[in-house]
Write a protein that binds this DNA or RNA. Structure first.
Lengths: 185, 185
DNA sequence: GTCTATAAAGCGATAGAC
DNA sequence: GTCTATCGCTTTATAGAC
């Protein structure tokens, strides 16, 4: 059986969970140490920049996942509707049907907004941009495509807020269904 | 000229701003002291329960504002469409055209979710419930009204996330316009 | 590469003078 | 009702042994 933590990247999923659950300020090093199974010494060995570098690495990891599974399919799929379908699948999977919130959205609303303004903006700009591109290739007029893309990403983020607030992950699934209908029209 | 802070309620707007800007954990007592112009002694005189009571009072204040300006008009307006119009006005005003985030939504996504689960859930349950009620009275079928209400509140929250993340408050105004169109249909 | 020990600062909260 | 001083604790971060 391989070591659970062999390199820096192995810690990122646990790190992401801690930040999602406790926010940036609430994610203390002792919580992080507990979640990753690593002492503070090891954490600072992997992340010399401390907590800020940990959160930055998590954001970068999330961005890479979305680039591969969402943004790239939207931009490069021969059939734009197939790209959109891949996006919907990835979103449903990533957010665990509404049980997992979006860390980037949480950072946008929360304490870490100023500190990570660039990666946060980049994530949402890429997402809306790639979706608008797919919608244009699917036949929508440019201005209409941009609005529909904005509305779609916005609806997903809002549904995550509502699902978490109401403790009702079905609200997220219902929202995804509505989004799908609207994108197909 | 009257005293700036004469009673507990006078501190709530400044308190709300601090929590909105820094989150629950990030809102330190020294920041709160600075924002309200009150020393720690005075703060604990008004809020014996400390920071948790401060945030609770802010949430209660927000809930009261929405009850009066949003939930009640939706439920009691003779013309349901007029009630919806009042809601849209209030939302546009309260969120300052997208420049101000929703503290309840931020708490839902953030560190304070567990601590304030009840008021957070209550706020969104009341909002979606009151809007669904107005939509039913406007002629929508019950199931359809509930979905449209959920979609509307969700769209507003998502637009606040997107506007903050992109640093583009116009994204919020565009979302409100789309919502208005959909509710009128 | 991982740990323990520790430093320095900030935290929420309290006490007591005025 | 407001303040300052202070307590006890936790925080991030570092140092150094292994």
């Amino acid at each position: 059986m391989p070591k659970v933590v062999a390199e820096r990247a192995d810690t990122l999923p646990a790190l992401a969970d801690v930040f999602r659950e406790h926010g940036y300020d609430g994610a203390s090093l002792s919580l992080i140490s507990q979640a990753t199974g690593l002492g503070k010494g090891s954490l600072y060995h992997f992340f010399p920049g401390g907590k800020e570098e940990m959160a930055g690495a998590v954001l970068h990891d999330i961005d890479a996942w979305f680039r591969k599974r969402v943004f790239m399919p939207l931009r490069t799929a021969a059939d734009p509707q197939a790209g959109i379908a891949l996006m919907m699948e990835a979103v449903e999977t990533y957010f665990q049907s509404g049980q997992r919130i979006c860390l980037v959205g949480a950072f946008a609303l929360g304490d870490a907004c100023d500190r990570f303004a660039d990666p946060v903006r980049g994530y949402f700009a890429e997402w809306t941009g790639a979706l608008a591109d797919a919608l244009m290739r699917a036949g929508h007029h440019p201005s209409e495509a941009a609005g529909l893309a904005e509305e779609t990403v916005s609806a997903i983020q809002g549904a995550l807020v509502l699902a978490r607030a109401l403790g009702d992950s079905d609200a997220f699934s219902r929202a995804l269904a509505r989004v799908q209908t609207r994108l197909a029209a």
